[in-house]
Design a protein around this nucleic acid. Structure first.
Lengths: 239, 239
DNA sequence: TAAATCGGTGCCATAATTTGGCACCGATTG
DNA sequence: CAATCGGTGCCAAATTATGGCACCGATTTA
């Protein structure tokens, strides 16, 4: 009996019996009491809610969870959810993000293949960096929620993006750039883009971007963005 | 890199790239060629259809197959997602959370009635406050991911919660309390609870809580928590 | 009150599995 | 022909999983 199939077996037995003792489970799956207890721990880590009761007549009970959801989510929505989880994880507290991940993984499994491809391409543009201690967060603006769909289109189709940018002095300019990455440096969020006119990468604080619009026309190419050492792709984050 | 997460990674990479060589995969997942070939075999055993082509320009290709149309999410997972969104929204930047909300709303619509009730009761316990500027975030610990299932059970069934708490001086005590709310004050997360022994509300920083356990027995009652003015229920947050 | 049951943890030696090289095969391409 | 590229067998080493044990605390039963 494999560790993975044993986990599956335990869930099945708990669903079937309603309540089982650790010893019963151990006998049924052909493993020791200790191993089953370890398995229970692992299953709980994976998000299964298993109640337990001590004493005679006690045992383990699996909360009848797993409600089927037939939600039809758009890539944008799933991406938005992923970004939220990424941001929370980036903020060092990492709380509960593994559970959220489990849910997202399930959602991802239900997306159509082409949607998954889109999602992956979007995630490849998502980077997360370290929190800087004692960050001054007094004058952070809010981020225009219209940015995400624009970013998404630009990332996926590699089309230029034009927007208004208000710099630190409050001066507004209009930029036309090639979006390469989204960078979360809590509490700040940046769009990292190649500026063809200036022949270099530029960081744009998202709370200073407004009125984004896609520029139809030729596609730009993806570039390798030179990030600092403490920045890592979302996909490779420690969990 | 775990064997299981490596399998997941390989599937993801294949979906993203379309075609990959074994050597590319090996480098990307940080394993040897031999191991990746074994993984490919295992994935094929699990039902994944992976085409292969020899020679120059060859490689592996994952057949874009069998997309399920339904996700199975537990209340815990949806709750975890919601909390992530709440945390991001609380961090003042509020970026894209409306899109994430839209996705969650769709999910919620497909949940069974009793699950929705549970979810609402959980959300009633979620509060969000203002970010304090120039917060010192240098000594924030990580939050035990085992907390969420415990909180959830405690909130839903109104059962007492016992845990170890390490105060600011590092002294550990064991507390038994009545959880009333989860409060997100970025970057800090708190459990707000009624302490019957001390006859008052107490805030517990989540990164200082460990070994949570439900105390079966009598249910406690919900109390009105006197929050500061700048704290608002998650459900009533501006979007 | 005592005994039995039951979940849970820490520890450690041992068993099992995984891993990375290595050599080598067959197919394909230029 | 040489260079790629998937695939297999084999083996020693590294990593994990496992079982057994002692022991704790809670709960039920006699």
């Amino acid at each position: 009996m494999n560790i993975r199939s044993r986990h599956d077996a335990i869930v099945r037995i708990l669903r079937r019996n309603g309540t089982s003792t650790v010893n019963d489970l151990a006998e049924e799956v052909g493993a020791s009491r200790r191993t089953v207890l370890r398995d229970i721990g692992a299953l709980r880590d994976q998000g299964f809610v298993i109640h337990s009761e001590s004493g005679r007549g006690g045992g383990l009970q699996l909360e009848p969870e797993s409600v089927q959801t037939t939600a039809r989510l758009s890539v944008t929505e799933v991406f938005a959810l992923l970004i939220s989880v990424a941001a929370v994880r980036a903020a060092r507290s990492l709380p509960f993000s593994d559970l959220a991940d489990a849910g997202l993984a399930k959602i991802e499994r239900t997306l159509a293949a082409d949607k998954v491809r889109d999602l992956r391409r979007l995630l490849d543009c998502l980077y997360v960096g370290q929190v800087s201690p004692k960050q001054d967060i007094s004058n952070i603006g809010s981020i225009d929620s219209g940015l995400l769909p624009a970013f998404e289109t630009s990332f996926l189709q590699r089309l230029h993006l034009r927007f208004r940018y208000r710099d630190a002095k409050g001066v507004e300019t209009i930029r036309k750039i090639e979006p390469q990455a989204m960078l979360i440096l809590p509490p700040l969020w940046y769009l990292v883009a190649w500026d063809a006119a200036r022949e270099g990468f530029r960081h744009f604080r998202m709370d200073r971007i407004s009125k984004p619009e896609i520029v139809e026309g030729t596609q730009f190419r993806r570039r390798h963005v030179p990030f600092e050492d403490d920045v890592c792709p979302f996909n490779e984050m420690p969990r």
